[in-house]
Simulated scan of single mutants.
Amino acid sequence: MPKLKTHSGASKRFTKTATGKIKRGQTKKRHILTSKSTKVKRKLTANAYVSDGDHAKVSRMIPYA
C-alpha cells in the first residue's frame, strides 16, 4: 500500500484531537468586523469541531494528523 498524500489546504485548516475529533476555526472573522459586536467577535475566536456529516471527508484529507 503506498503512502497517502495529505491535502495541504486541509492540513492548514484542521487538526485532530486526542479523542479523534477534528478541530476547525470559525468563519466570519476576516473582514467587515466593524459591524459585528465585541461579544460576537470574541465568540468567533473559539475553535469549533467538524460536523459528523463532514468528518469522513476531512479525515481522508488528513490521514496522518
Score class of each variant (00 low, 15 high):
L4R: 11
K16P: 00
L44M: 14
K28S: 08
G20E: 04
D52E: 15
G9T: 03
R42K: 12
I62M: 05
G25T: 07
K5E: 13
S37K: 02
K57V: 15
S11K: 12
K16H: 00
S37M: 03
K28M: 09
T17S: 10
G20F: 00
D52M: 12
N47K: 13
R60G: 00
L44W: 07
V40E: 10
V50M: 10
T27E: 14
A65R: 00
Y49R: 00
S35Y: 06
P2A: 11
H31E: 13
V40L: 11
S59L: 06
K43L: 07
D54W: 15
L44C: 09
T6K: 04
K39D: 15
T38A: 14
T6Y: 01
K39W: 10
P2W: 12
K21D: 09
T38I: 08
V40G: 01
V50I: 10
K21P: 06
S37Y: 04
Y49A: 00
G9K: 09
Y49L: 13
H55W: 13
A65N: 04
T34L: 10
G53I: 06
K28D: 04
G9R: 02
R13I: 03
F14G: 01
S59P: 01
H7K: 08
T45G: 03
Q26A: 13
G20Y: 02
D54E: 15
H31Q: 11
T38H: 05
G9A: 12
A46H: 13
S35G: 03
A18N: 08
T19S: 14
Y49T: 09
K23T: 11
I32T: 06
K23E: 09
K43M: 12
N47D: 14
T27G: 14
I22R: 00
V58K: 02
H31R: 10
K12L: 11
A48W: 12
K43P: 02
T38V: 09
G53E: 09
L33V: 04
T17V: 02
R13E: 08
H55F: 11
R13C: 11
R42E: 08
K16R: 13
A10L: 02
G9Y: 03
T19V: 12
A18D: 05
K23R: 14
V50T: 05
K16V: 12
K39T: 15
P63C: 11
T34R: 07
A65S: 12
K36R: 09
H55C: 03
T45C: 08
K5W: 03
Q26M: 14
K36S: 01
A56C: 06
S51N: 15
G20P: 01
L33Q: 07
Y49K: 04
A65I: 02
R60I: 01
R24S: 02
V58T: 07
A56N: 10
T6D: 03
A18S: 14
K41H: 01
I32N: 14
H55Q: 14
K12I: 05
T17Q: 03
S11N: 08
